[in-house]
């Protein structure tokens, strides 16, 4: 193995790793809002609104991320949707992860004991205030780890945006292999970077989880 080469390419790959982090973080951020909207739609009193959310979730879960990405990037312009590669990666990532995340959020909200709703309602809190003060603070602890798993999937999925030539970690690695003909060294360094990113995500998730569930062991 060419250790010197691995050291030489590291700065370039670190720079590309930031793009991976950037695209994933943005997708996660917007995905959370999409997920929240989907949860609200799924609990709507208007049936067609619920059906729409369910249909959307089914489509996203029933098709590969890779196909979704290609569809939006190459198929989008046909209906006037022209996105630059980076934006396309963020948008498709957000809409994709949002569908999964809505299920995680809904599951967490539904697993808060019904007695909590009753106690809150019996004091005079309305539906929304109950959600805000009682249910969501408890659901937060329950959803953080599942959202963490989704964040990890998001980081790994981001390697697929190399196909629409976003210069992130995997695309940069392929370019370096093109010029060095050393796939073992280059992919080893890039794999290591994915590991570092994902461990960092897991660390953040554990930190947030502990904060959100502090009350259980205080």
């Amino acid at each position: 193995m060419d250790i010197n080469l691995m050291i030489d390419i590291t700065p370039l790959l670190v720079k590309a790793a930031w793009v991976t982090i950037d695209i994933s973080a943005r997708a996660l951020f917007f995905g959370f809002f999409i997920a929240s909207a989907l949860v609200a739609m799924r609990t709507s009193r208007i049936p067609p609104v619920r059906w729409l959310a369910r249909a959307y979730i089914s489509v996203v879960r029933g098709t590969p991320y890779f196909v979704q990405l290609l569809l939006v990037f190459y198929g989008g312009p046909a209906i006037g949707l022209r996105l630059d590669p980076f934006t396309c990666g963020v948008v498709v990532g957000a809409f994709n992860i949002g569908a999964y995340m809505s299920e995680a959020i809904r599951g967490a909200i539904e697993s808060v004991d019904s007695g909590q709703h009753e106690a809150s309602r019996s004091l005079g809190f309305g539906r929304f205030a109950t959600l805000q003060h009682i249910v969501l603070p408890q659901a937060a602890g329950l959803m953080i780890r599942s959202i963490g798993v989704l964040a990890i999937i998001l980081v790994k999925n981001s390697s697929l945006v190399s196909i629409i030539s976003v210069v992130e970690l995997t695309y940069q690695a392929q370019r370096l292999i093109g010029s060095t003909y050393k796939p073992l060294e280059v992919f080893s360094v890039s794999a290591l970077m994915y590991i570092v990113i994902i461990y960092a995500v897991m660390g953040i998730v554990e930190f947030l989880y502990r904060r959100a569930t502090r009350y259980t062991y205080l």
């Binding site: 007695g115 106690a119 603070p137 408890q138 009350y215 259980t216």
Partner: peptide, 8 residues
Amino acid sequence: HFNLFPHL
């Protein structure tokens, strides 16, 4: 079952 708010 009391139904105290565990996070408070």
